[in-house]
Design a protein around this nucleic acid. Structure first.
Lengths: 201, 201
DNA sequence: TGGTAAAGTCAACGCATGTTGATATCAACG
DNA sequence: CGTTGATATCAACATGCGTTGACTTTACCA
């Protein structure tokens, strides 16, 4: 539980404090960039500057490493939770800001992309995505309306997943190189519609 | 170029006519269900009832097999092309019908899912998705408006990809078990907005 | 100073994969 | 009949993977 021993490394700033964290960071990067299957323990260990066996020592298995390292940063869940506060009329825009922002920050982006990329081939990753959509998005929607909240949540989720894939994985232009502010502008009305609009006219 | 010899199989009905087609069908199914990495030549060959070496004989390599078998059925491209005809006010609904319909038919669905699932780990598959969005969707949008057609195309594409992933890969409820008609109803307004609506209010 | 437990390395395992070359089967054709 | 060329199988290869166990190094503590 500790491993604080070697925490005497580098006085302060970023760069992982402990070897364990260095491995976690490398793993997140590789899972996000290559997906679960193409990311290898040897590659992750190499990027972290250690031996592959050490990764197993610390995390038990590749699967366990994935699950542990792909936990949503608490900050994201909090941001989602706070979204219900504020005028309903601009809820879509606030959601767009949180989503796009989450995809800008390297830490949370690698978690989200790692999940989505791996969801295509790894059942556990698919379960993570499913859970996040129904629980976190579902909670937000439930706070806004009583009209078909589960449907609204999954529609929002599908657009979020599609955005992540198109912009950061497949990298379709002009979306891939578009400034974040523009993406927010484009998505806000659609999120607004999915959240509180008339679903079936 | 021929291989019509053994076409004397089973008088008529579906089921592949030739061994080559049987392999192609099995390959599509497995690529769609498992993605490029998890689908194996041995597995595909097994489902087709032949040896793995024969697959290589016919198609050259796993990569070549993927590309050849994942070509868009001409029917889909035609359907997309015909979408521009008709009232602009219902273009979004027509598009939703084509997209959802394409995901209902087993043949075209396996192609689309195979591409999207594999796009997460296989660069060639990502290129296929990119190309389809910019070219096929792009053509449709260009026939409808002159206002930022590339942006509109990629926004539509992102929602299409997200729908496919959420409904058929991750299988988030209630979207996964929803009847096609309902999905069309939900998506039509959003497609309509992306196609010809005011993008940045 | 020893001793001890964690941190870390190394070599090897068993296994599955894509691919290859040698070989068999078999219908068609002269 | 005998040759030919496509269709098909088989056994084997090289490679890369996750994982393991034995080992060495390091840093703390009594």
């Amino acid at each position: 539980m500790s491993s604080e021993r070697s925490a005497k490394r580098s006085g302060r700033r970023p760069g992982p404090t402990t070897t364990r964290e260095a491995i976690a960071e490398a793993a997140r990067r590789q899972f996000a960039e290559l997906g679960y299957d193409r990311a290898t323990l040897r590659g992750i260990a190499g990027e972290a500057g250690v031996d592959a066996a050490l990764v197993v020592r610390f995390y038990g298995s590749k699967d366990a490493l994935f699950l542990e390292v792909m936990a949503l940063p608490p900050a994201v869940a909090e941001a989602m939770a706070g979204l219900a506060d504020g005028p309903t009329a601009t809820a879509g825009r606030r959601l767009a800001e949180v989503i796009v922002g989450m995809l800008e920050d390297p830490r949370s982006r690698s978690v989200v992309l790692g999940r989505i990329r791996s969801a295509s081939s790894h059942p556990d990753a698919a379960a993570l995505v499913r859970e996040t959509v129904t629980r976190d998005v579902g909670r937000l929607v439930a706070a806004l309306t009583d009209d078909e909240p589960e449907t609204r949540a999954v529609l929002v989720g599908s657009q979020v997943v599609g955005l992540a894939l198109a912009r950061h994985v497949v990298r379709v232009e002009p979306l891939a190189s578009m400034p974040a502010a523009a993406v927010i502008d484009y998505l806000a009305p659609v999120f607004q519609h999915y959240l509180v609009g008339t679903l079936r006219p």
